[in-house]
Nucleic acid binder design. Sequence first.
DNA 1: ATGGTAGGTTGCCTA
Length: 272
Amino acid sequence: MKIASWNVNSIKARLPAVIDWLETAAPDVLALQEIKCAADAFPFLEIEAAGYRAAVVGQKTYNGVALISKAAPEALREGLPGDGEDGQARYVEAVFDGVRVASIYLPNGNPVGSDKFPYKLAWMARLKRHAARLLADEAPTVLGGDFNVIPEPEDCYDPDDWADDALYRPESRRAFREILHLGWADAFRSLHARRGGAFTFWDYQRGRWQRGEGIRIDHLLLSPAALDRLEACDIDTVPRSRPKASDHTPVWCSLGPAAEAGSLFHAPGEDG
DNA sequence: ATGGTAGGTTGCCTA
């Protein structure tokens, strides 16, 4: 089962690129962020013509997330619990063939001196609470999305350039680690221990793509049951290389079949 | 110290 995440920076501007990627990469589930449109303005017909369906939590102009899938979504959750006053469209979650997948667009948080930074940290605290509850569920789970967090120095072309940015501030990185420490695994790092220079975002400005100066902020966090099934994970930089590209590129993972009941553990003495 | 680009909305915000 192939699961991917991609911040498309407007689904309308990126529709041909998304259709092309669905056809070439053939994910079972694709979590989109920054679709920048209301649900009733989402291009459902074009997505369905490509053989997929869409669960959309939309918003005009800003934010907006979706789950594109081959299978029908079950147990659909629209919005992150914990603040009924929060109207920003940043979270959608559903179960596909027994695997729960979330599409997360975590707040950017810049500039750090503004109220956007505490909003980011409060949102991360809400996400932590929800992520803890999800671990109590038996369904293997993938939290995919634009987390707007650079976890470690090797996830950035030049950490000094980002020292005071909300994406790299200690508070943001600590909150990200707190979620990991609940029992979630960064799928990319699980398979590529210290591979530096692997990025998912390159700023449109200053020729960052051409210079190879990116950051890794799009992540797939796996619950233990999903991590047990992890077979591959990588970043597909091809979409970022094309004309009219999003500033982000897809990250994907593939999960093998679920282990059968009773085969989860080795019998005593089996390993010698 | 600043500006550079892209997208959406509308005379400016977000990233």
